[in-house]
Write a protein that binds this DNA or RNA. Structure first.
Lengths: 112, 112
DNA sequence: TCTTTATTTGGCGATTTCGCCAAATATTTT
DNA sequence: AAAATATTTGGCGAAATCGCCAAATAAAGA
C-alpha cells in the first residue's frame, strides 16, 4: 500500500507549470516591473526609462511576464500599457523578505 | 520635485536579492522538494528516489536551496536531513495556482 | 504620404544553468 | 583498517537565459 510519492505524471507537470511562473519572476528587472505595476499601470516607455536598459530588452521582459499570465497589456494610441493581472503576486514579497532576513542573520552568525 | 523612481542603488540591490531567492525556487525539482519538505523533513536519499535524477543532481539542488536561505540541513549518522527554514514559502503556491488558472482560462478563450 | 514616436521581433555572442559522471569526503559496520 | 552506504564537489558538454543592435510593425502628426 501507500506508495511513495514520486515526481512523475501529474505531479511533475504541475511543478513544471509552477516553475514557469516562478521563472518569469526570477529576474531583478522583472521584479522591479511587478513592484512598479503594483502602484498602477505603466507604459513601456516609462518602465524603460526607470530601468535604464534598451527598450527591446524591457519589451521582452514584459512579453515574458505576459506569457506567464502575470501581466496584461493594452494599447492606447502609440503606447502600450501594462498592469498586473494577478495582484496576489505581491504577497510573495513579504515572504521573500523573510528569507532575506534569515540570510542576513546567517551572514552575521558566520562573521561572529 | 517628485523624482521618478529608478532602478539604481538600493532599489536595484533589493531586487537582485529578491531575484536570488526567486531563482532558487524557479525549477521543477526544487519546487517539488519544497513541496515535499512542507510535509516534514526528508533525507537526500528519499528525495533522490522520488525525483528520479542522479544523487549529485539532487544534492546540488538542495545546496542551492540552502544557500538561498530556504532550507536547513542536519546530518544524523550517514544521512543528511533537510527541512524548510521559512514555511511561508508555501504561501506562494496559492498565488501561483491563481496565475495558472488565469493562464488556463486564457488558453480556453484562445481556443474558442 | 512622409516623418516621428512607441513597441515588438529576429538574431547573435556572452553568460548562466542543468544534469550526468567520476572522484572525494563522511559515517557506520564488519 | 577495509567495505559499504550516503552525500558532496569538480568538471564538462548541452541547453536556456540575457541584453544589445538592427529591422519590422503600429499609430499619430505634419
Amino acid at each position: 500500500m501507500s506508495e511513495q510519492r514520486n515526481f512523475e505524471g501529474e505531479t511533475k507537470a504541475n511543478m513544471e507549470a509552477r516553475a514557469r511562473v516562478m521563472k518569469a519572476l526570477a529576474h531583478p528587472s522583472r521584479l522591479f516591473i511587478v513592484d512598479e505595476l503594483s502602484r498602477g499601470e505603466r507604459c513601456v516607455c516609462e518602465l524603460t526609462e526607470m530601468i535604464g536598459a534598451d527598450v527591446s530588452t524591457v519589451s521582452k521582459h514584459l512579453a515574458l511576464l505576459k506569457q506567464a499570465g502575470i501581466v496584461l497589456d493594452e494599447r492606447r494610441g502609440q503606447q502600450v500599457f501594462y498592469r498586473l493581472r494577478v495582484p496576489c503576486i505581491l504577497n510573495f514579497f513579504g515572504c521573500v523578505e523573510a528569507v532575506l532576513e534569515e540570510v542576513g542573520r546567517r551572514t552575521l552568525e558566520a562573521a561572529s
